[in-house]
Design a protein around this nucleic acid. Structure first.
Lengths: 318, 318
DNA sequence: GAGCACTCATGCATTAATGCATGAATCACT
DNA sequence: AGTGATTCATGCATTAATGCATGAGTGCTC
């Protein structure tokens, strides 16, 4: 195994995460206390006693003193190898931290729903990068429940989610709302209309996402508001797949606007009940933001109401 | 890469070699400051502030506080992986140290000359193990100069060596002296004698070890004392090889007694000059001994004068 | 071989970290 | 909802580590 030589300059991360190790390695490498002390940017007597303390606590002599020189014991030599590897590992980890937290080039772990993937998020990122070209992103797509889990597990900094989760451990800010269309096949009896009430398809078969998806919950709730329980013909995992099912006449669906107009289906506005889903920005409550995360969060919050492309916000509700 | 879970009990080595790392890992694993403090055997407030200090010095939040609970930041989670590996490495190294320094089962790195390998050292070790059956040995055979180098480099705890090195960095105690025989072929003109003076073979060709070997230096010096410079016929690297060369009539040699009597050669005692080589125990000056090394050193020093098998010590010279 | 240069260790005043008791805040339970 | 139990953080006295000045010992040079 090859270990890269760890820099032991006084500013090094290892000196704060594992000062004893760094001190020992510095002395062991140079076999010279004063020089090691200079390298570490600390007084020689302090280092001398620090090493002596280490030896006393370990109960093993690491350095052999010969007059004004020191050399490594066999024990010290063996420990040096392990200490070098450990230090390299610490340095690697700390460097990754530092890099991820850098305001200009750091990393943002950003999650969002599949339905926001093709258009909304790319647009957002494009605009954001104009001002912050070197911030890196780790993009995660998942459904709502999994997103919340990742947020809580600590793997995700921010996410766009719908509906807004109620978990007290998750902080949410509503950013925008997205119209949901009733999607019917081209030959459907309502295909000529522009606007419909949801109750008009109470008897139609529905194609929906599987239970657990936010959109499924919203669909169920809207139908309940309209006074019926939807008859489920098919359950799927992707909205574009659902549109395909609608296109071949297998049912109707409540879906966010399509990325591109699709043949063989008609998108109808729903007048009653008000068919929208809330898009929120969520993060772990109490999670302190690294600079790049804070920057991106500010950017997103500033786009409240104009998050989604080409869909003017209705007068501020509630 | 698989890292074994590191024990973080208060007695663990990592807590003295890298306390900050151990503390962070304990908190990160449990996501619970009090429990981690209990594990580490330290008061909770101390740990709390220790972690806070770490975060302040790193400039990155590692823990997210939610009321009375804490959880890992993404940064903390990333650091944890590295810290775990580093800690495992430290623990491995420290454990090796501890094992090597254990008085009962520790390791002694012991070097000796090739010529002492077949008989002397095995006998010594046999006797030593009667009292210390579990002390482990790392045996190194080399010639004198290389032995001293290893001693100084720190890879060797003790060694039996001849002649006694003069280096001030090496401590030596004379343990015994070994008679050197003049070895001649069976048909040699002196083969019938029991004792000879070295000068009697002043004109014979010699087979000797290569320059750098202690025995070679001794041979050269003894010949010089006897008033001649040996005519070198062959140089070799092993004494038994030299005996073979003598057996086939290629010269004579000054060698320590053979392991087993060998056909076709005759071993003659040398009366003048006194043909012996000093066998000494040497170690790095100032090198502190681990318990097992100290035990073995005491054992060897106690055998001063009776180190070599079957060769009664002459009246204490010098 | 005496003096000088150099290196590691130690005495002492200062500073920072520790440990105990307690505060602040949250969660669970009645 | 009030109450009690937890849990993390903070105030304060104590202890230990730090840093400076200096001592002790060694190797090199003139």
């Amino acid at each position: 195994m090859h270990t890269t030589p760890v820099e032991l300059a006084s500013g090094s991360w290892a000196t704060v995460l594992a000062p004893q190790l760094a001190q020992f390695v510095a002395v062991a490498r140079t076999e010279h206390v004063s020089r090691a002390a200079a390298l570490l940017g600390m007084p020689q007597p302090t280092l001398s006693r620090s090493i002596a303390r280490l030896e006393a606590e370990l109960g093993v002599a690491l350095l052999a003193r010969h007059g004004r020189a020191v050399s490594l014991t066999r024990a010290g030599r063996e420990l040096l190898a392990s200490a070098e590897r450990a230090l390299a590992e610490v340095e690697r980890g700390a460097e990754a931290l530092r890099a991820d937290a850098d305001p200009a080039t750091g990393l943002v772990s950003f999650g969002f729903l599949h339905t926001l993937g093709p258009e909304t998020v790319p647009g957002l990122l494009h605009d954001f990068r104009a001002a912050n070209p070197r911030i890196r992103f780790q993009l995660v797509q998942d459904h709502g429940a999994a997103m919340v889990a990742r947020l809580l597990a600590g793997g995700l900094d921010l996410c766009l989610i719908s509906p807004l989760p109620q978990d007290p451990r998750v902080a949410v800010r509503r950013l925008d709302e997205q119209r949901l269309n009733l999607v019917v096949p081209a030959g459907h009896r309502l295909a000529g209309r522009r606007r419909v009430r949801l109750a008009e398809v109470a008897k139609d078969p529905f194609v929906v996402l599987e239970t657990g998806y936010g959109l499924r919950r919203i669909t169920d709730e809207l139908c309940a508001n309209a006074g019926f329980a939807p008859r489920i013909a098919f359950e799927g995992e992707e909205t574009e797949t659902l549109r395909g099912l609608v296109a071949v006449g297998l049912g109707v669906a409540l879906l966010p606007p399509p990325v591109l107009p699709r043949p063989n289906v008609v998108e109808l506005a729903v007048t009653a009940p008000r068919a929208v889903r809330q898009i929120g920005l969520a993060w772990r409550e109490g999670q302190p933001d690294t600079p790049p995360v804070a920057t991106f969060k500010r950017f997103l919050l500033a786009r409240r109401g104009s998050l989604l492309p080409g869909e003017p916000e209705p007068p501020p509700a509630r």
